[in-house]
Design a protein around this nucleic acid. Structure first.
Length: 280
DNA sequence: AAACAAACCTGTGCGC
DNA sequence: TGCGCACAGGTTTGTT
């Protein structure tokens, strides 16, 4: 579900409540969510600690603790991070509850809810190799270092399809199935075009549109699809779905050229939407 | 090297 | 109204 724009929106929605607050209660109830370590490791690792930063890399949320450890939270397909009153009833599939006390003394719960249990919560020492995937991530499109030169060298010159390449988190961090389709549509390129067949101008456009689409989506608070699964930590929905030009628009007329009918195929193992007329 | 398929799970929406 | 099936935003692993 959540791609970079949704994860960034969640990060922003928890930051003020989390940073500076101290953990006064922890309950890891779901085993699958803490499978990388254990319930005990998460509870012991958090209790009494103070959060000092709420960061994000690609789709990974990283919370730094005052003792030098960090907390990695990945939402995968169905995870949600919610800020609630500690007395509020727990939603079904609540797997981790972190009771926070702010400097002013007010108490809030940070809860991890995840029906499909693909998501994870890991408390780790950054010197250890417990979360190696973080170090393998490519550049995040929102950082200053995401320059055209960096982007171009990360793509390499390959015979690989564009969609598979952009979905590869070691090439660019944070792009998922919705945004890759929107980025490729804006660039008027098909998902199956090969990276090594693109002109310099097309590469430049692809880089610029990657940044543009992701920025606009963050601005819109992400995309909440019809199932309304995705909301930020305060329960607010995103509105970028109203700006989708191809995703979930199979059979509808192309909003860009007004001539094509949006098609859906499977590419790179994922449901793929594109306009057969204006994407080449 | 790249393209697929399957695996991990639950919920939902569709056709009958 | 109810049932069964297909499918879903991510990532890893193994096979062609």
């Amino acid at each position: 579900m959540p791609e970079l724009p949704e994860v960034e929106t969640v990060r922003r929605s928890v930051e003020a409540a989390v940073v500076g607050s101290t953990v006064v209660r922890v309950e890891a109830t779901g085993w699958r969510t803490v499978r990388r370590t254990s319930k005990r490791a998460v509870e012991v690792g958090l209790l009494g600690e103070t959060f000092v930063a709420a960061r994000r890399r690609g789709k990974y949320l990283l919370f730094d603790l005052a003792n030098g450890n960090s907390v990695m939270v990945h939402l995968r397909m169905s995870g949600r991070l919610l800020l609630t009153d500690p007395t509020a009833p727990r939603e079904p599939h609540t797997h981790v509850v972190i009771g926070l006390s702010s400097p002013s003394g007010s108490e809030t719960d940070l809860r991890f809810v995840d029906p499909r249990t693909f998501g994870e919560v890991v408390v780790f020492n950054p010197d250890d190799d417990l979360v190696p995937e973080i170090s393998r991530l490519g550049l995040d499109p929102l950082v200053d270092e995401f320059t055209f030169q960096q982007f171009r060298s990360a793509l390499g010159r390959r015979k690989r399809g564009l969609k598979a390449t952009l979905l590869d988190q070691s090439v660019v961090a944070g792009i998922g199935n919705i945004y890759v389709d929107e980025i490729l549509h804006r660039t008027r390129l098909r998902h199956d075009r090969k990276v090594d067949a693109l002109s310099l101008a097309q590469l430049r456009l692809l880089h610029a549109n990657t940044v543009e689409v992701i920025r606009e989506a963050v601005e819109a608070g992400g995309s909440t699809l019809s199932d309304t699964q995705y909301v930020d930590a305060l329960g607010r929905e995103g509105i970028f779905q109203t700006a989708h030009r191809v995703y979930d628009r199979e059979g509808q007329r192309c909003l860009t050229c007004g001539r094509g009918i949006i098609r859906r195929v499977v590419a790179a193992g994922r449901s793929t939407h594109f306009c057969p007329v204006c994407q080449r």
